[in-house]
């Protein structure tokens, strides 16, 4: 099975304080710690496990600037066979659809049976997988937490639906799936793993290699544009309830009745 996994380099928001630039057009990006988007890691792990079971190759692709290469390399250290770096000034300022347009062009250059994305990214909107599938006219399933390969034409996937409920779907290949965290346990990547792939060549593709009109991606093609970024108001910290346990419970119940909507 030929599998393509689309990954993204994002600021790690559990590691960083995120601040907004003075003019509100973006976040302060200097000093940020970046990593691979967490959801994407699960997608790559799943792809590797499928390949190890049924054979084939795993290709990891990412749209982004020069620094993005380290993320692709990290995922190759996990065990992906190939990496493709989609880099071009024209991609800058892409919205979800711009990214999906870029990935569509890449998919059409290969012959992938299965395309995986993370279900969402911290700095994104969880939309690229669905858009990509629509543009390719491939079937799509989101929030996938189980994959069973039936044969080379068909797979079964488990998906989380409302209320913590679960659904099993049957999908014909080729298809696009967005992967939920928890589907597996992504393997640890050590320094040795990274070293192994340190000198592997990762091809770079831009708009002309992909045959895309520069006007339909990047800021030029974006229909969703940033207007303003701001930090939501923070609370002042908790009012700590003190006294004997009895007093605390009494105070708390009064507060819950007054403010928590408990009757």
């Amino acid at each position: 099975m030929e599998i393509l996994v689309c990954v993204k380099r994002v600021p790690d928001s559990s590691e960083n304080e995120i601040e907004v630039k003075g003019d509100g057009t973006d976040i302060e990006r200097d000093d940020l710690v970046y990593s691979v988007n967490e959801w994407d890691n699960y997608a790559v792990e799943e792809a590797i496990q499928i390949r190890d079971k049924v054979g084939g190759t795993v290709t990891v692709a990412s749209v982004g600037d020069e620094e993005t290469e380290e993320v692709i390399r990290r995922e190759m250290a996990m065990g992906a066979d190939n990496g493709i770096h989609l880099m071009d000034d024209a991609f800058e300022g892409s919205d979800g659809k711009g990214l999906a347009t870029t990935l569509k062009a890449l998919v059409e250059q290969g012959s992938y049976d299965l395309i995986l994305t993370g279900a969402q990214a911290d700095d994104g909107a969880g939309q690229v997988g669905g858009m990509l599938a629509a543009m390719l006219d491939y079937p799509f399933a989101s929030l996938v937490n189980l994959i069973e390969v039936v044969d080379d034409k068909k797979i079964k996937v488990g998906r989380e639906i409302a209320g913590g409920n679960q659904e099993m779907n049957e999908i014909d290949l080729p298809c696009v799936l967005s992967i939920q965290t928890g589907i597996n346990e992504p393997r640890y990547v050590g320094i040795r793993g990274i070293r192994k792939v340190a000198s592997v060549e990762i091809p770079v593709k831009g708009v002309s290699d992909l045959g895309i009109d520069a006007g339909v991606v990047g800021a030029a093609g974006a229909k969703v544009k940033r207007l303003d970024y701001f930090v939501p108001e923070l609370g002042e910290g908790a009012e700590m309830l003190e006294g004997s346990t009895e007093e605390i419970i009494e105070k708390l119940i009064e507060l819950l009745k007054a403010k928590g909507g408990i009757k």
């Binding site: 999906a100 909107a125 939309q127 669905g130 858009m131 629509a134 989101s142 639906i161």
Partner: peptide, 21 residues
Amino acid sequence: AQGKDLAARLSARIDAPLAMD
């Protein structure tokens, strides 16, 4: 979960901008 799934594909299909979540 369903709404997000639907919104992404609908947005691409009718070429409309989408604000997710």
